[in-house]
Design a protein around this nucleic acid. Structure first.
Lengths: 227, 227
DNA sequence: CGGCTGATTGAATCAGATCAACTGCTGTGG
DNA sequence: CCACAGCAGTTGATCTGATTCAATCAGCCG
């Protein structure tokens, strides 16, 4: 992998988008490219948090698992997203597990060197602060949903997210239903019933991986004002 | 309020602890002191996020509320804690509500000026990054608990937190039970039953606001390895 | 001594999980 | 090209942890 390619790859990461060429080159020089297959585990909760990652291609999920086997997905990251920033600034362990959902290519940046770059570039630090703040906001939403809403309402919120991302009312589910269930804090059986419930109410129409939103306003009412 | 007093107050905030005198003075010059009574609302979810806060004395809870009236506490902040950092770096709205639980004195720092100070002090920015990372870690734990554990297990985790904070097995509950219930994502009735359950199993002994841990290992087993 | 608020207890109900069976799709190998 | 293994998803029946509703109790302040 020659250097120019790495620089190009990194410039596609949102967090590094505005970075001057020189900084990008520095980053590229400490970055390792990592190719992983579907299902590969990248790190586990409690493991030493030595690296910070960015997805160049593919899809990665970050989740926690109960002894029972039930899993809660915290976030799914796609191309251009950076993740695993928590241990970078705490120097401790990863708080969750990460697993590739598909064949993916990742940029892997060693913690120590990355902090050095940050120390020298306050703008990157501010970008990082914005990234973490956005993450916090997302978690606040997730906590509120888990605690204050029931499954069909959370599902409504998720469908609205997809709508915003895909900019259409003819959605294509971006994950297998089992993974969506884990993201919503439930299990596939319950998700299946929730989809049916919304369909019975005439709010959506489903067929496999396709979901047509018949009544987006009803979804917004269900999901509540907040995102 | 003369200036020296503000500097002293700010130096008691963990986030600003290591800051050089000059920076502290700059901060003090843009800081407003705010006195609030028990029950006062500091800001509400969705409101414009103009200020960043630190608790100088008293206690503040940050929470989200459902239309039904049920509330989920995200965090309770005491003296020395900074909070409401999310809108500082996103320049948007507060993601949750904040309310004083007791008479409190707060340092209130305008967003724009604070960002300027940060831009000039990379070390403060790194401190801020560490603060946010810790917050993220806490939220990950909270999400996992809400989704993967049941109430008695979450309660066990909470009691262990108190044990670590108070460094004794003779705990004093730091919040009214109703608030603890809201923090654990449940309601007072259920918390009451969970306490009774642990007591029946001989793991704890309760009397009002006092809780004696008879079998901390059992609590750790219940709560699971993670914090 | 009331009267308010917080906490507890009991009974009924409910959302969601669990368990089990079945469907349907996909890819592989005979 | 068909058969079948294997997995994801659905459906139904049951179980259970938690909420709801209602009543009572304890403590604290005026």
């Amino acid at each position: 992998m020659e250097k120019g390619k790495k620089v190009k790859a990194l410039s596609g990461v949102a967090l590094f988008a505005g970075l001057p060429e020189a900084q990008l080159r520095t980053l590229a020089s400490i970055t390792l490219l990592k190719r992983v297959g579907a299902g590969d585990i990248l790190f586990e909760a409690g493991g030493p948090g030595t690296h910070f990652f960015a997805v160049l291609s593919g899809k990665v999920r970050v989740y926690r698992a109960a002894p029972s086997g039930k899993e809660q997905i915290l976030h799914v990251f796609g191309p251009g997203n950076a993740f695993a920033e928590v241990p970078v600034f705490e120097g401790k362990t990863y708080p969750a597990n990460a697993q590739a959902l598909e064949e993916s290519v990742l940029a892997s940046i060693p913690r120590r060197e990355f902090v050095e770059v940050l120390r020298r570039d306050p703008e990157l630090a501010l970008g990082m602060l914005a990234l973490l703040s956005g993450r916090l906001r997302g978690f606040v939403t997730q906590i509120a949903q888990l605690s204050l809403q029931e499954v069909p309402e959370r599902l409504a919120g998720y469908l609205l997210l997809l709508r915003a991302a895909q900019n259409t009312d003819e959605l294509i589910l971006d994950l297998p239903k089992g993974q969506i269930a884990a993201y919503l804090g439930t299990i596939p059986e319950t998700l299946s019933r929730a989809l049916k419930k919304l369909a019975d109410q005439g709010i959506i129409e489903t067929s496999g991986v396709r979901v047509r939103l018949l009544d987006p306003e009803a979804l917004e009412r269900l999901a509540g004002a907040r995102g």
